[in-house]
Design a protein around this nucleic acid. Sequence first.
DNA 1: CCAATACTGAAGCATGTGCTTAAGTATCGG
DNA 2: CCGATACTTAAGCACATGCTTCAGTATTGG
Lengths: 114, 114
Amino acid sequence: MLKYRDPLSLAFQALADPTRRDLVDRLLRGPASVSQLAEPVDMTMSAVVQHLAVLEGAGLVRSQKIGRVRTFQVDPDGLRRTEDWFRPRRTPTESRLDRLGEHLARSEPPQENP
Amino acid sequence: MLKYRDPLSLAFQALADPTRRDLVDRLLRGPASVSQLAEPVDMTMSAVVQHLAVLEGAGLVRSQKIGRVRTFQVDPDGLRRTEDWFRPRRTPTESRLDRLGEHLARSEPPQENP
DNA sequence: CCAATACTGAAGCATGTGCTTAAGTATCGG
DNA sequence: CCGATACTTAAGCACATGCTTCAGTATTGG
């Protein structure tokens, strides 16, 4: 079939599995090794590694290996690019608020609880 | 396996297919019948109907049948609920702008290009 | 050094997915 | 009424996915 190889399809596909979304959530709290990621999950490390490969293939996480430990972390750009699919597809009512938000974001840096 | 039945998984799964995203895009320009949706797509109407069933099962579109014509339209809430998964998962830098947007959206109705 | 640790990779099984074809069932227009 | 229209549904095929087991390969601590 060889048809779902575009980045958006890969990302949505990756997020369609609750185990993988849990892994993303874990990684949002900070980088973690394969063992650390596998520990709370009720399946073999092998399966977790396969899930991580899907997430990495979708550009949602990245990893690097130091010694025998591979450490994963979220790729914020991957998440943002996926979320960006929705923005131009909001209904007009939602879009008006949205355009305001973008306008303000462009014009003034925000204040943290002034 | 029977494991991907939660609404979020269904929605992401539905959006993981380019044909289905195209159908959503078509429907964002206005409601359409099955025939109208199937016409520009290079596959049988049967296949398109199956794609539409996936989208409807995921709560991304709705349909009603009048006479022999079934008309589909986007369900904006379904799309918004799916997009909402990303919001609390943005990195801190992005989140600051985001919280500003929400704050402003709550306080003042926007002006259209004054 | 060498056994424990931390993955890695291949094979295999059960199910799920994306199509097609083919045979329906309603409704409508004349 | 009756043929065209507009779906609907079921069966079946090829390939994808989510696991498991099992057999590796590097690293590392003592």
